[in-house]
Design a protein around this nucleic acid. Sequence first.
DNA 1: GGTCTCATGTAAATAGTTACATGATTAT
DNA 2: ATAATCATGTAACTATTTACATGAGACC
Lengths: 193, 193
Amino acid sequence: MNRTELAILGLLAYGPKSGYDIRQVVEQRLGHFWHESLGHIYPILKRLHRKGWVHRRTEPGRAGPQRHVYSLTSDGRAALEGWFREPIEPSPPRNELLLRIFLGRLAEPEDLVRSVSEYRDRRREHLERFRDIARTLEAEAAEDPDLTFWLLTLDAGVRAAEAAVAWADDALERLEPLAASNAPHRHGKDEPA
Amino acid sequence: MNRTELAILGLLAYGPKSGYDIRQVVEQRLGHFWHESLGHIYPILKRLHRKGWVHRRTEPGRAGPQRHVYSLTSDGRAALEGWFREPIEPSPPRNELLLRIFLGRLAEPEDLVRSVSEYRDRRREHLERFRDIARTLEAEAAEDPDLTFWLLTLDAGVRAAEAAVAWADDALERLEPLAASNAPHRHGKDEPA
DNA sequence: GGTCTCATGTAAATAGTTACATGATTAT
DNA sequence: ATAATCATGTAACTATTTACATGAGACC
């Protein structure tokens, strides 16, 4: 069962939505751990409809483009519930920064330092953003029955970002000396064995 | 420029390899942050050859299947060096566990608890494995010029896994009470708004 | 004799992104 | 006027996995 299908079913369980709506929700609420493009959402909605997991209604009395609103059918809800019962299998890792570090001996140390710095900055921004959102949610959605779950996803983001920043700080301490000793007088780079 | 192409170029920079060899190295050395399947490696090698980034040599005097050994050309090395100079753009997130947590109100709390427990166990195993490998490397490859870089990738894994386990522990503390109050007397599940 | 590892590759399918195409409404 | 937002969808492309197909040699 496709992950995108599940994500969409999950969001529809909270109420009917158009493809465009789904995109908004994914971007605004799931953005820190999930991503979907419109070019993917529309075909998947079509597929879900073919399978009978969603019902499609065209909003009447609209000028311009038609608005199609989708809602969960009972089959769709059953599929969603089935997913919750299934184990999650880890997705194969692909961390481009770590690939670059691993091959680090082939690179100019300054390039590694820059790569890690940029990563650290990005993760620091995430950290602040996640904390901000968590604070806002705690204040403005204090009564929401979903609050616990949302805070858990944010906390996961915060912890991961903290660990990433701490790693990057440490990595920079080890990489900067290499760049410093390399910079003053540059000959040709050593060929790897 | 394709990430798999880069990974393969990077490994070939350490010496000529066959597709099969590359698979072994990816699995054994890059396994904690990178993945490639054979069905992907072979076509990519073909493509790299077409682009003139690798040279292909068929090993003579072998019975059975031919062994094709690839090595970097200077164009290939240039491509690799270009990559080091380029910024890394973050890949769109897709965290299935967090998706499940986010939609948690739709699930049975026990299912959430199980999902998080399994995740925690998996990450704990990673943690031990990474620490093991780091210890082994420090002892057996103390002189290797790549050691620093390898240890950095492992440290990233260790820190990420530690943060993940800590998060999971905390999440379980918040989710288990929900499961407990749910389990004794189960009526129908509440419908979401 | 059977299974594991070595060794290559192709084919089919799935997943997903980006660019294209269209056009109304609303705010500046 | 013009840009942004609302709104849908398709087409082309890229990436990637899994299954299939083949066969030798080594080990048990």
